[in-house]
């Protein structure tokens, strides 16, 4: 006889969020929680590389870029019955799953015809021309080829998956900093890991 009264709450989590922030000292890469009520953890970045796309070339120096980019690894992890731990199946042979994670972020400033290699979450319209409440079309690419069936989140909430052309339409819901993040999961090439997860973020400011 069921006599438990359960009050149900379903709550999404906040994750570390990569951002490229405009500061008086120029653009700065930030990686951490932007919501103050969320528990904070320090996750080291490694293998950091930067990218600057202008109208005529792609460099690594962040100066007067149309598109600012950064990529870095955030570690190797395993899921155990006592939570997520750093490491691989070598250190944790009883792990339920094991993965490596990385981040790629772009901050859009101006249109450019150049598409960088590797991951890219590309706006197909000039973001600033889209009115609030209208939809922006994004395309997820890897080395210029579309990635299908990849979930894309807006403000940490998944809004859908990319179609066969790697495209997705998402409605802009607020002014200020816009964050779109695609999470691409694929088999890991490291033997002691199951999968590799990369978050690809597109960020821009909108009035």
């Amino acid at each position: 006889m069921p006599v438990w009264i359960l009050l149900f709450f379903a709550l999404p989590l906040m994750a570390h969020e990569a951002s490229i922030l405009a500061t008086p000292n120029g653009m700065q890469l930030s990686y951490g929680h932007t919501v103050s009520s969320t528990p904070n953890h320090d996750t080291p970045m490694s293998n950091l590389s930067t990218l600057c796309v202008t109208d005529y070339n792609i460099t690594t120096s962040w100066q007067a870029c149309h598109l600012y980019g950064a990529a870095f690894d955030t570690g190797q992890w395993v899921k155990t019955l006592q939570g997520t731990r750093k490491g691989t199946r070598i250190e944790h042979p009883q792990a339920l799953s094991a993965w490596e994670s990385s981040e790629v972020i772009y901050r859009y400033e101006k249109p450019t015809s150049k598409v960088p290699k590797g991951y890219m979450l590309l706006p197909l319209q000039a973001p600033h021309s889209i009115a609030m409440g209208e939809r922006i079309t994004l395309q997820l690419l890897y080395d210029g080829k579309p990635l299908a069936n990849v979930p894309v989140a807006y403000d940490d909430q998944t809004r859908g998956i990319t179609d066969a052309q790697g495209r997705i339409n998402i409605r802009l819901r607020h002014a200020g900093t816009q964050h779109f993040t695609a999470t691409h999961t694929r088999p890991s090439t490291t033997p002691a890991l199951d999968k590799a997860i990369t978050n690809i973020t597109l960020q821009f400011e909108h009035d």
Binding site: L7, A10, L11, L13, Q82
Partner: peptide, 17 residues
């Protein structure tokens, strides 16, 4: 009586263990 809270990742996967 009890209160139950479900926590999920952004894609809906459970925040397990």
């Amino acid at each position: 009586n009890a209160t139950q809270i479900f926590i999920t990742y952004g894609d809906g996967a459970p925040f397990d263990y």
